[in-house]
Design a binder for these strands. Structure first.
Lengths: 228, 228
DNA sequence: GATCGGCGTGAAGAAGGCGTGAAGACCGCG
DNA sequence: CGCGGTCTTCACGCCTTCTTCACGCCGATC
């Protein structure tokens, strides 16, 4: 999650950066409204934290200009407690308004709330289609010609490893480590067994594979692209 | 625009009703959390104003229960200024948090902001049907062939977790954390016991399940779609 | 054309997870 | 203090899943 912080006070910028990065947000900070508007356009952040008291442009004007082209959640940070400022900022298009000094915990919670709301139109992992085969990574569901295909944990882990690297040649060792764990790397009989089960359940033929391609002596490869 | 106000203090209800109706909102007021949850299901309001200090149910619990079936914007009104309360409410699914006493102008602006970004998506059905089984998420009521099915709190929590994620494979750890709390994750015997009770009470068969599907070694899955 | 290594196939034993039944612990309530 | 409901825990068959082995086939190599 990328956050753009717009504030002219360096110590506030630093404090926000520290706290946000500690919670695994990617943080970019700028000091002027002009940079803020351009930053939203260039960086396409997931969240905008905006100080109202900027030296160059009025805060509500920044909100208006951002809203002209972006739906990014905006949380306003301001020392001004006056109702008119809050109303103006919110009506200009801000999503939330927090007065300084603020508790970092609360700001983070409000940021989570704002990001959560913005989620729905975020494209969740699409359903992959290969002919009549459908693989829903989010639901962990595989169907073939409409019928659910039951896969064991190991089978699914192997399928996931293959499907998430389409077209790429995956070596025996790489696959073994990914599916079975770091301690493995030479047990190619495991691979043969489970590749076989996968091909059987997915309706693939080893002699003329349409899904899992054997690369003799090296590894396996999933077909290039989701087709049909 | 329809607004549901949940507050146990009559004078607050009256004040909110007056101000909101002056701004052309349609207002319904109730005094308890239970009525609030049911009201969201029955009235499908565009906005929920919720007091945290209700006599019957804890405020965050009301939020959680509403969020089980509705995406309606929720603005919390509360006398509690503690950060933990704010964080808990926001993380439970609230959209905004306003401390009493509040300025009506600000609340109206926050309401406008909440309504503006609300997704105009289809109202989620509060009553789910699976054959002769009916699950009313708002009233926490489960009926089977017209007969009420009594579920213990834990049983209902597990059912809710499953039903609100149809078709998705929910891992043992995910379910344990959701139903029993953060400290859990390995107690699969709990799951086995309660899944068994649920299947028994809902009339499902473990060997050929129509509702709760076992994914050996991974977790459980509720059937894909409400049918019948 | 013979040898050899790697792969696909089939199958079987071992290990672990699941469903089941039940019993004890805990808790709120009268 | 007793009681009913609920939660937690245990032991026991059964079945899925994992692991392992043997064999035949094919292409590569010499």
């Amino acid at each position: 999650m990328k956050v753009l912080v717009v504030d002219d006070e360096p110590q506030i910028r630093r404090a926000l950066r520290t706290s946000l990065e500690a919670h695994d947000y990617e943080v970019v900070t700028v000091g002027t409204g002009e940079e803020g508007v351009v930053g939203v356009a260039d960086l396409a952040p997931d969240l905008l934290l905006l100080d109202l008291g900027l030296p160059d442009v009025d805060g509500t004007e920044v909100i208006r200009r951002v809203r002209a082209f972006s739906e990014v959640p905006i949380i306003v940070l301001s020392v001004r407690e006056a109702q008119t400022d809050k109303v103006a900022a919110l009506d200009a298009g801000a999503d939330d308004y927090v007065t300084k000094p603020f508790a970092m915990e609360e700001l983070l919670a409000r940021a989570r709330a704002a990001l959560r709301r913005a989620q729905p139109d975020e494209p969740t992992q699409p359903i992959l289609r290969f002919g009549s085969l459908e693989i829903d990574l989010a639901r962990r569901l595989v169907t073939r010609e409409g019928e659910a295909v039951h896969l064991t944990p190991t089978e699914y882990a192997l399928l996931e490893a293959l499907v998430t690297n389409p077209g790429k040649l995956l070596t025996h060792q790489w696959l073994l480590r990914r599916v079975w764990g770091q301690g493995y790397g030479t047990e190619t009989t495991y691979l043969r067994t489970y590749v076989r089960m996968l091909r059987k359940k997915l309706g693939d033929d080893a002699s003329s594979p349409a899904l899992i391609i054997t690369e003799p002596g090296v590894g396996y490869r999933w077909v290039a692209e989701p087709a049909g």
